[in-house]
Amino acid sequence: MTATTHEIVIEAQGLKRRFGAVEAVRDISLTIMRGEIFGLVGADGAGKTTIMRLLAGVLRPDAGAIRVAGVDVVAEPKRVRSELSYMPQRFGLYEDLTVAENIFFYSELFSVSPRERRARTGQLLEAAGLAPFQRRLAGQLSGGMKQKLGLVCALIHTPRVLLLDEPTTGVDPVSRRDFWAILYNLRESGVTILLSTAYMDEAERCSRVALLQAGQIRSCDTPSRLKQAMPGALLDVVADDPGAANQALKDAPGVLGLLLMGDRVHVRVDDAGRRSPELRARLAERAIAHTEITTIEPGIEDVFVALLEPDGAA
């Protein structure tokens, strides 16, 4: 990994936060190094947004300690704010201000010098593909352009830490590509990035990923090590009727879990070599037309699903 050093930039210990009866975050500890792109992955309600808010200092934890860029966020939330940029999940800029006005406003809040502002604005708008839209009201931008504008505003000063809460949800593929290009560039310059995402392909691009479930981290490692650590092996079953195949294989011996993915079923088994012919026989027996069963490398989604299943989680 490029600019990763051993300098700890984000450190959270024993974070807890509840909203009424709901324990949104229970005992989360995280250590993130300088230059990492760290991904928080989890279903809706897993606690991603709450963790982001706690780290940004806009929400107080019930228990636990947070240090971001050397500042105790719980004790001194104000001091950390000039060190980080936080992009909430909901579009947080002013829709009745133009692209340029929003950028100007945030650059003034972060006391960016006019010279630096001009230089960075041009550069960032170019990278985001927003240069032709400077005079457009933010409310009239598409979803993807809004998110990129959010990123531009977040980067108009030089944050040490960038917190992005589901930045690419609802964003078109072209904008997502622009977005990630900017993130990779930032990492080169030593900015630490924490982002949450529900997209597994984005999780694969992170240097490290924490899989969240019900306010807890189920697993945290690099994407490749997470995949290696997945118990069992993965078989890819392509079938004409994947739903029927899914049903047929559900209680076959040795099957640890299934994941329906479009025209195929990912079947996690204890032993690929032994189970592959068995599954083939079972499908034939039930007259379910299938073209092939192959052993594949698991993706993050497979790992994630495996961890969420009771047997896999053990």
Partner: peptide, 14 residues
């Protein structure tokens, strides 16, 4: 209501 406060309070503004 418009959701702009969350981002505003994450800046150094007092």
């Amino acid at each position: 209501e418009r959701g702009t406060m969350e981002q505003l309070i994450s800046t150094p503004v007092t």
